[in-house]
Computed example of a mutant assay.
Amino acid sequence: MEAAEVKDLIDETHERERAKRKAPGGRHGESGEEGGHGVKTSTAIYISILAAVLAVVSVAGSNAGKDLMASAIEASDSFAYYQSKTQRQISLRLAADEIELLSAGMPADAQAKALQRTAEYRQAADRMETEEGKNSRKDLLAKAKAAEMRRDHAAAQDPYFDFAEGMLQLAIVLASVFAITDKGFILWTSRALAAIGLLMAADGFTLILPLPFL
């Protein structure tokens, strides 16, 4: 529910109340009007607060969804690069072993060159494992695992924000209905839904109390 929709609900409520006061049999008298105006003001403030909280929850839910997608892509890319490095490393070591075996029957000069090439291949394979700042296998694996952790955290947050957003929207709608009907149970239902929405939003930010159905 957007801010403009909330404003429309409040304005519509005010218009209906004015029409009811002007209609025959409507509420008259200064005390009645003052009491009605007080209820209207408190309801409008309540709806506005819920709308502000809803906006925050909406942004948080949107950010969680974006983090989920971005982290999933980063983890996939890092693992793909890690696997590519691994295959390259294996290929270098296999080539080094093969050259070393073949060099046994070579003349001395050729054997020396072959062993030198073997050493170069093995050094290149070792550099792929731990070379700092060069996207080594170690660095890529760490990046992939960190991205996976961010992805899992965002995936855990997202349903809480969705649930909280739904509860807050229902609370706003019921508060608007109360402003029109003056039925107390509708207001208390709205407050109960708002409380559930706030708790779900807080749990979405902190993940203190994981819920099994989310």
Results as ranks from 00 to 15, higher is better:
Ala3Lys: 14
Val6Met: 11
Lys7His: 13
Lys7Leu: 15
Asp8Phe: 13
Leu9Ser: 11
Glu12Leu: 15
His14Cys: 08
His14Asn: 12
His14Ile: 14
Glu17Gln: 15
Glu17Ala: 14
Lys22Met: 14
Ala23Thr: 09
Pro24Ser: 15
Gly26His: 03
Arg27Gly: 06
His28Phe: 10
Gly29Asn: 04
Glu30Thr: 14
Ser31Met: 07
Gly32Asp: 11
Glu34Trp: 12
Gly35Phe: 11
Gly38Lys: 10
Val39Met: 11
Val39Gly: 06
Lys40Ala: 11
Lys40Gln: 10
Ser42Ile: 15
Thr43Gln: 02
Ser48Ile: 02
Ile49Ala: 13
Ile49Lys: 09
Leu50Asn: 06
Val53Asp: 07
Val53His: 04
Val56Arg: 00
Ser62Asn: 12
Ala64Gln: 01
Asp67Ile: 09
Asp67Asn: 09
Leu68Glu: 09
Met69Pro: 01
Met69Gly: 04
Met69Lys: 13
Ala70Trp: 03
Ala72Cys: 02
Ile73Gln: 13
Glu74Thr: 05
Ala75Val: 04
Ser76Leu: 08
Asp77His: 06
Phe79Pro: 02
Tyr81Thr: 11
Gln83Pro: 00
Ser84Val: 02
Gln87Phe: 10
Gln87Lys: 13
Ile90Gly: 08
Leu92Phe: 06
Leu92Glu: 08
Ala95Lys: 07
Ala96Met: 13
Asp97Pro: 11
Glu100Lys: 12
Leu101Tyr: 15
Leu101Gly: 15
Leu102Pro: 00
Ser103Cys: 09
Met106Asn: 03
Met106Ile: 01
Ala108Asp: 10
Gln111Met: 15
Gln116Pro: 01
Thr118Ile: 11
Ala119Phe: 06
Tyr121Val: 14
Arg122Asp: 08
Asp126His: 02
Met128Ala: 00
Glu129Phe: 09
Thr130His: 08
Glu131Thr: 06
Gly133Val: 00
Gly133Met: 01
Lys134Asp: 02
Asn135Gln: 05
Ser136Tyr: 00
Lys138Gly: 00
Asp139Lys: 04
Leu141Gln: 07
Leu141Ser: 08
Lys143Pro: 01
Lys145Asn: 02
Ala147Glu: 03
Ala147Lys: 01
Glu148Leu: 14
Glu148Lys: 12
Met149Cys: 12
Arg150Gly: 01
His153Glu: 07
Ala154Arg: 01
Gln157Asn: 01
Asp158Arg: 12
Asp162Ala: 08
Phe163Leu: 07
Gln169Lys: 06
Leu170His: 08
Leu174Ser: 02
Val177Thr: 03
Phe178Tyr: 14
Phe178His: 13
Ile180Ala: 15
Ile180Arg: 15
Thr181Ile: 13
Gly184Lys: 14
Phe185Pro: 03
Phe185Gln: 12
Ile186Phe: 06
Trp188Gln: 08
Ser190Ile: 04
Arg191Leu: 12
Ala192Glu: 11
Ala192Lys: 05
Leu193Glu: 02
Ala194Ser: 08
Ala195Lys: 03
Gly197Ile: 02
Gly197Thr: 03
Leu199Ile: 01
Asp203Thr: 00
Gly204Gln: 01
Thr206Val: 08
Ile208Glu: 05
Leu209Asn: 05
Leu209Ala: 06
Leu211Thr: 03
Pro212Ile: 06
Pro212Asp: 07
Leu214Tyr: 05
